[in-house]
Write a protein that binds this DNA or RNA. Sequence first.
DNA 1: ACTGGCTCCTGAGGGC
DNA 2: TGCCCTCAGGAGCCAG
Length: 271
Amino acid sequence: MPELPEVETTRRGIEPHVLGERIAEVIVRRRDLRQPVPRNLRAIRGRRITGVGRRSKYLLLAIDDGCTLLVHLGMSGNLRVASPADPWKTHDHVGVTLANGRQLRFHDPRRFGLVLRLRGDPMAHRLLAHLGPEPLGDRFTPAHLAAACATRTAAIKSVIMDARVVAGVGNIYASEALFRAGIRPQTAASRLSSPRLARLAAAIRTTLADAVRAGGTTLRDFLGADGRPGFFKQRLFVYDRKGEACRVCGTPIRQAVIGQRATYWCPKCQR
DNA sequence: ACTGGCTCCTGAGGGC
DNA sequence: TGCCCTCAGGAGCCAG
């Protein structure tokens, strides 16, 4: 479910409720996520949350003992601000109760998500160390994208979904950015000219920034920290629109599988 | 060094 | 209604 805009929406949603707050209790109802929730997670009890950050699709809660709570939402996860008195839903796996009477609930039916407690520099952790530049940051430039694509024969869509090339671009926004750039998703990355890649880099930026502004995309089950859906779905040009008319030229949107993932494009607008 | 394929898991939706 | 099949927003790991 969540790509970068959904994770950023979650980050912004929880930040005002948790920043500076003391952790009163940690409740773990299920440990068997993508990696087991560590036994020492409870060590954050009594500590304070000093920062709410994001890297790629990971949320990083800085704790005042120097460790970091690393949260990944996987395909079906969400993190919401609840009351400790709220009934626990079936797939609410972890709860972090705060001194202000709020409780962060980690909910994840498919359990592809992750809750870890990291010591030391989180960016040095093996899950984060290999990540490429943030697409909304200064280090993601046309030159960077061109260098990454120069030697790669894989489909451009697969390349922009490679987190080592650029972090946080998932299946929805890869198709959307390629539409905005006028590039067919199956084109071999190395065959794209510099101007076209520059246009793609800009499209990745604007697509993600627009989606963040709309509170992310809710296709089926994404909810922000306040339990509300995102509204970017109404603005999708191609994703999940197979057979429907292109919003620009009216041609039916096509769908195919690239790298095991459903991919959508307009055969007229994208060359 | 890349590339494509497989895997984890649950639930929703379509077809019959 | 109900059952069965397919597919889903991620991403690490594997063999070739």
